[in-house]
């Protein structure tokens, strides 16, 4: 699983890089527009270690933000599954608010909360929160009648049991959504750092852009891709182990 994902990323990266170099040499562009191999290798030797730690910094914020949003989506999803006014309200609110572009709200978050870790965390969490929430509400609101019926008619049903049944029956869907939203958490954190933070790889990319240094951006993209692939593989593995633990018969 891991080597396949990394191989896929490397293939895409190398293809992209080759295309850029091809354009550079065909159009005879300077290193200022597209860096050459020499410039790239020099940049790698200069910034690789620093950028690696920047990516780790971003990744840690993304992971925490992702965990927060999964917890939040679970709580709201549990409320949203109710047939009461609270459930309906949460559902309607979630469907409406999710259409709001979080990046547009990000500047307000930075003004209110400053440019420290809390803003990055909040934006990362919020960016991956809505897709998660919609899936969680959908899954937790959808009865699994063939299983729930027995508990309903025998009066054994509790909200915990209901949630457990629905989560268990939709484990594959949930795992896919969680892995998918993990990418969004990473993207959200980078965007947040790009807009206003003072650390992380998004911040480094912003500085590189100020300096019109595409080679730094390419190194950053490489590290982001590799680290994100590793993280997604980890998540998939965890999901697989959880499912396997319950399903082994």
């Amino acid at each position: 699983m891991l080597h396949r994902r990394i191989l896929q990323f490397l293939l895409i990266y190398v293809l992209g890089l080759t295309s850029l170099l091809f354009i550079k040499y065909v159009l005879k562009l300077s290193d200022y527009v597209i860096p050459g191999p020499q410039g790239l290798s020099h940049t790698v030797s200069c910034v690789f270690v620093k950028y690696f730690f920047d990516v780790m910094n971003t990744l840690s914020v993304a992971v925490i933000g992702h965990i927060i949003s999964v917890c939040l989506a679970t709580i709201v999803g549990i409320i949203g599954r109710l047939n009461s006014w609270a459930g309906s309200f949460v559902k309607v609110a979630a469907y409406n608010i999710q259409a709001y572009p979080i990046v547009a709200v990000a500047p307000i978050i930075f003004i209110l909360m400053g440019d420290g870790i809390s803003s990055r965390l909040l934006i990362a969490a919020v960016i991956c929160y809505f897709p998660l929430l919609l899936s969680f509400i959908g899954i937790l609101s959808e009865p699994v009648r063939d299983i729930e019926h027995f508990y309903e008619v025998t009066g054994r049903m509790s909200w915990r049991l209901q949630v457990k049944i629905r989560v268990f029956e939709n484990m594959n869907k949930l795992a896919t959504v969680i892995v998918g939203s993990a990418t969004l958490a990473m993207v959200g954190t980078i965007v947040a750092e790009f807009i206003a933070a003072d650390s992380g790889i998004g911040y480094s990319i912003r500085i590189a852009l100020y300096q019109s240094d595409l080679s730094k951006v390419l190194v950053a993209l490489f590290l982001i891709g590799i680290c994100t692939s590793l993280w997604l593989t980890c998540l998939e593995r965890i999901g697989y182990l959880i499912q396997n633990h319950f399903r082994k018969g």
């Binding site: 300077s30 290193d31 200022y32 527009v33 860096p35 410039g39 300096q211 019109s212």
Partner: peptide, 12 residues
């Protein structure tokens, strides 16, 4: 600074 950076990287 943009111009000098570009020239240092071979831009004409």
């Amino acid at each position: 600074d943009q111009v000098i950076r570009a020239v240092s990287k071979g831009a004409s």
